[in-house]
Simulated assay, not measured.
Amino acid sequence: MRDFTIKFVKTLRQVINAPMLILFIVSTKKEVILADVRRWAKNFGLIDSPNWVNMLYFLDKYPEFRTLYYYRIKKGNFIALIPMHIIKIFYKESPSLFLYCDNIGSGLFIQHGFSTIVSAESIGENCWINQQVTIGYSSKMERPTIGNNVTINAGAKVIGKVTLNDNVTVGANAVVVKSVPNNCVVVGIPAYIIRKDGVKVKEQLI
């Protein structure tokens, strides 16, 4: 009886959230949305479920994913925008996660997107952003560029016309105001390098 109840509730939730799939069906951003779904599924260990099942699960359970989903829809075709504005009335996005970016590569994972502002020139593929992160301007025109496979941990701040190159990890609460080379881990205020190409170091950013 318990297994039946769990399965029934799960199916019911899928039905309730099914209207959000309308946006996916009419969108021109299907491939990038599916890449997001696969990345989230990998992180949550749900790789054995079909993409559409995982998509509904993330849309139901994670407002952060919903915000990213709506971002993808807005970057697609005009036809999808019309139903999106109606659907957003009933299926709210995260109230404290803001994505202001011209281009975000596929596979972005946002863990606990509470009080998180992402305002970058561009973000590469397969990046990871935690809660209370600020990526933003130092002036009206200067904001960061984020490369591929970049992880920005809780409370970190990346400010101004800087570049986080590929495979960079920014430690919790670090403040990055200078560009970071490839394959580095940075921590501190202001941030400095503690690992480069897999080797422990202590280097200032220049």
Rank of each mutant, 00 (worst) to 15 (best):
T11R: 13
N126V: 06
K202T: 13
V186H: 09
Y71E: 00
V9G: 08
P95V: 04
Y100I: 14
L34T: 06
T11G: 13
T134D: 09
L46G: 09
K74E: 14
K202V: 12
I25Y: 15
T11Y: 06
R72H: 06
Y70D: 00
K74G: 02
G124V: 01
V170F: 06
D102Y: 07
D36T: 00
M20R: 02
S49G: 00
R143E: 15
R2K: 11
V177G: 08
W52Y: 14
N183F: 09
G188V: 10
G107I: 04
A174T: 05
I87E: 00
G107R: 03
S119L: 04
G198S: 03
Q14N: 13
A191T: 09
E142Q: 15
P181N: 01
N167L: 09
V158R: 08
V15P: 00
K61L: 12
V180W: 02
V199N: 10
I129Y: 01
R2V: 03
I87T: 01
N17D: 06
V175Y: 11
L59S: 03
K74D: 13
Y69R: 00
A154S: 15
W128T: 07
E93N: 06
C127W: 03
G198W: 05
I104E: 01
I146K: 01
I194C: 09
P83M: 02
I159K: 13
N149W: 05
S119E: 12
P63V: 06
M55L: 14
D36A: 05
R39H: 10
Q14G: 14
I86D: 03
W128C: 00
S138Q: 13
K61A: 10
N77P: 14
V26S: 07
L46S: 15
G45L: 02
V15N: 05
V118S: 03
L23A: 01
T134G: 12
F44R: 10
M84H: 03
I152W: 10
Q14S: 13
Q204S: 15
I110P: 09
N43K: 07
I146M: 07
S138C: 15
Y91E: 00
T116F: 09
R72A: 06
N126A: 13
V185Q: 08
N130L: 07
N148P: 15
